[in-house]
Amino acid sequence: MPMPMQTFSQELHVKILMIGNSSVGKSSLLMRWSENQWLPEDETSATIGVEVRRRKLDVRGENDTAGEEQFRTMQSAHYRGAQGIMLVYDASCRQSFDELTRWFKEIDRYVTGPVVKVIVGNKVDKEFQRQVPAAEAAVFAEKMGCRFIETSAKTTVGVRKTFRDMVERIVGNPELRIVSKPSPPQASFARPRAPSFLNY
């Protein structure tokens, strides 16, 4: 793993928050990353409140928030302690990109310390419906001082890289306070990536 090696008695806890407009694919990205799975649109439903996923070895602590306006007041609590924030938009939906500025304002409002930010353009598999050119988003990201990456939770493009990048930058940033605590030996091992439990 690209993460700097830790001693066996330690594990790092990293909290990454995903925000962005409703229906841009935050939960799908999370699902793809944490379980390598993708559900077609008609099999997913809206996230209510916050969904938390954990993945060991690389990263732990992953929050996926509901995109809708009203939940935002509830979410101030979830910003607390986050070392990384992914701002997700839908490359096939102009509005979700334009409203990223509002999400940046949100971050300014709730996050006080240093935090690693990444702009993620999801759904690039819908190339023919693209409304946001990658170049434009890259320029915007540079202006906002954060990285930019395009992904597709459906085809897995860029998903692992996005999260890996994020973790590397968090771990490599001495300003960020990363919770590291001793843990029992067995917790240092990743859960084996066994096949589906129904496969026998």
Binding site: H13, K15, V50, G61, M74, A77, H78, R80, G81, V179
Partner: peptide, 11 residues
């Protein structure tokens, strides 16, 4: 978990 330092609510 570092989410809430004071009286975390049952989110």
């Amino acid at each position: 978990e570092g989410q809430h330092r004071h009286a975390p609510l049952p989110y």
